[in-house]
Design a protein around this nucleic acid. Structure first.
Length: 216
DNA sequence: TACCGC
DNA sequence: AGCGGT
């Protein structure tokens, strides 16, 4: 039996078709995987025809890329915004770990493997994001944190930014996912915590922990 | 919605 | 076989 999702008859068309497709795709891909969800599934849930989807997106790869691009963009905005506020270093760190937990635990880990394997262009976008945005962001936080006395003054921001990036990358290694014991989200959070405690001053450590109490 | 081809 | 694409 087919289950059809009935939407409010015309929820004001507040969302453009393109946007609706993107939202449904984002949610469905994250929950069930980019391979198990078909273009037809998305069309059905959106209450439109496949043809309409293909008017907005050239093909499935294009749609997967758009989904990823949007997630990355949103996260980036949230993070740079925090760092632009005065000080903001500690808030940025705690917010980052919160975002990672929320984001990663809402994504079926299988999706990560599928995208690496079957949607290399979308994966490439993620890698570029890592290499440019995350690295730049890290160097900025590290520098600012040093100036404000949260991190030990002798640390090399660029080297440590790269170390941190390698930690992130290593947790994404497909061989990890083969192990059922492996908790992807937990590993990322533990690695981040460990990294931070290696560079905190006492002031930084305390600020981090009290900020965590407040925000989490 | 039917259909093709991978 | 079933999905992407027409």
């Amino acid at each position: 039996m087919k289950v059809s999702i009935v939407l409010p008859p015309n929820s004001k068309e507040a969302l453009e078709t393109r946007e609706r497709i993107l939202e449904i795709a984002t949610e469905q891909f994250a929950r069930f995987g980019v391979r198990t969800i078909t273009m037809e599934d998305i069309a059905r849930q959106a209450g439109i025809s496949k043809k309409t989807i293909y008017q907005e997106y050239a093909d499935k790869r294009d749609l997967v890329k758009a989904v990823f691009a949007r997630i990355l963009e949103e996260d980036q905005k949230r993070l740079t915004f925090i760092l632009e506020t005065e000080d903001g270093v500690i808030e940025h760190l705690v917010q980052t770990s919160k975002m990672m937990r929320e984001r990663l635990s809402s994504i079926n880990p299988m999706v990560i493997m599928e995208v690496q394997k079957y949607f290399p262009e979308a994966w490439r976008m993620f890698e570029e994001f890592k290499e440019h945005t995350i690295q730049t962001d890290l160097v900025n936080v590290l520098e600012k944190g040093k100036e404000l006395g949260y991190f030990r003054p002798e640390i090399d921001s660029l080297i440590l930014a790269k170390v941190r990036m390698n930690q992130i990358t290593s947790a994404f290694d497909p061989s990890n996912f083969a192990n059922p014991e492996f908790n992807f989200v937990e590993e990322q959070l533990v690695l981040m915590d460990h990294f931070l405690h290696g560079i905190f001053t006492e002031k930084g450590r305390q600020a981090y922990h009290s900020q965590k109490e407040i925000l989490n």
